[in-house]
Design a protein around this nucleic acid. Structure first.
Lengths: 217, 217
DNA sequence: GAAAGAATGTAATCCAGCCGACAAAATAAA
DNA sequence: TTTATTTTGTCGGCTGGATTACATTCTTTC
């Protein structure tokens, strides 16, 4: 989603420090001070909030090449609204707010790309809202699996994407906004139907065409 | 949400043309070419999409002082993804894409404010997603009424907002993602409870504290 | 004014999907 | 290996809220 240029990465490497987070580690969490931005070098990051009764609700997943923690910094909010957690081993650059803003000011093309990134995410979020209203659970699950596969897999010519997704049903449930048991049955439906292929507990193939038949609209 | 400066408005007035839309008029619609941006001078605008079976799904409402049609232009998408409709008599400035981009380039402070606007909207959209997952319908309705009241009413000291909201239950249903009849019963519940006050078919008062008791978390 | 059209209220039916409870695998730890 | 822990499968019961179907009331239009 964000195509970083070589010189930009060079600049970032100079002002940022790299940190590695093991799976499950929390990168930042709700109501912490928001004075830095993160750039994902590798790994998957979940953006979520914990409810008062302890449940987790995810509002987005972020992939390598994405920035996270941007919205608060660009909005000049000083507390994090959401938390971020490493979904597998993650390697991240931490950039301080001031440095990031200076970079934006000095590199107009970079700045323009950041604006585009924010609009892309807004459109993405609006589509998610739309999907929540329109689609019953199977549809939402199908949409999400498709998005994940397209982000992190190799697309074959026949519409089959080869991936290697290791996500628990619990995780899926909290992104989709559903119950774990429901996800379990639906995944089995998808499997029987040939929409997805498993290898042990890992999703290794996604048949985009078949999966799309589960989506409304 | 967007505080425009006097000089910015002056600039806009020079490059834009003003158009008035009567209630119900469509400002732009899905899959049209997206080469302009709009600035709302007065009135309410609904951002929505029509589904294949004819239902409408709204993803946001925009108020006076807001820009609309921004995301596609900033993302360099050339087709509108959503439609916009005047919810009452609306007065709007139309700014052509090139003029708008030139303005952003020439006025860095304006540009910075646009970035902030996009992040604000992203956070708003993410909160909506969160609410959809967390809250049952009453909660979503309460949240929406609160937001509307705060945007367009005068806040009294006692937590009661005086407004003048004329929205049909049908409209509410398609923003909340629910059925008209459900909205009907809920509004009556809210009315009995003292959360909202009616005058004919117009909501004239919103008791923020009482309304908040209907919201989860 | 009357008649047509919109917007609301109410009630009965029905079903997707949540929840609780538990068994069976699979992974990790010891 | 054996044991503990995490992740999955499955099955009723229950319920929020969609859907259908009218009746009523308010607003326009003629």
């Amino acid at each position: 989603m964000f195509e970083i240029a070589e010189e930009e990465l060079k600049y970032l490497n100079q002002i940022a420090s790299e940190i590695k987070y093991p799976k499950g580690q929390i990168i930042f969490s709700t109501s912490q001070k928001a004075n830095e931005v993160y750039y994902i070098k590798s790994g998957l990051v979940k953006i979520y909030r914990t409810t008062s009764d302890g449940r987790q609700v995810s509002v987005a997943l972020r992939y390598p090449g994405d920035f996270i923690g941007l919205a608060e910094v660009l909005s000049n909010i000083n507390e994090r609204e959401y938390s971020a957690e490493a979904m597998d081993n993650v390697s991240i650059l931490i950039i301080w707010k001031d440095g990031f803003k200076k970079m934006m000011a000095e590199m107009p093309i970079f700045s323009e790309k950041i604006v585009r990134l924010m609009s892309d995410r807004l459109r993405e979020a609006q589509n998610t809202i739309y999907d929540f209203i329109m689609n019953p659970i199977q549809g939402r699950l199908a949409i999400f699996l498709l998005a994940m596969a397209e982000r992190s897999g190799d697309k074959g010519a026949d519409g089959i994407i080869h991936v290697r997704l290791r996500v628990t049903q619990e995780e899926l449930a909290c992104v989709i906004g559903s119950a774990r048991q429901t996800i379990s049955s639906l995944l089995n439906l998808f499997k029987e139907d040939g929409s997805i292929q498993y290898e042990g507990r890992e999703i290794v193939g996604v048949n985009t065409n078949k999966l799309k038949t589960w989506i409304q609209e």
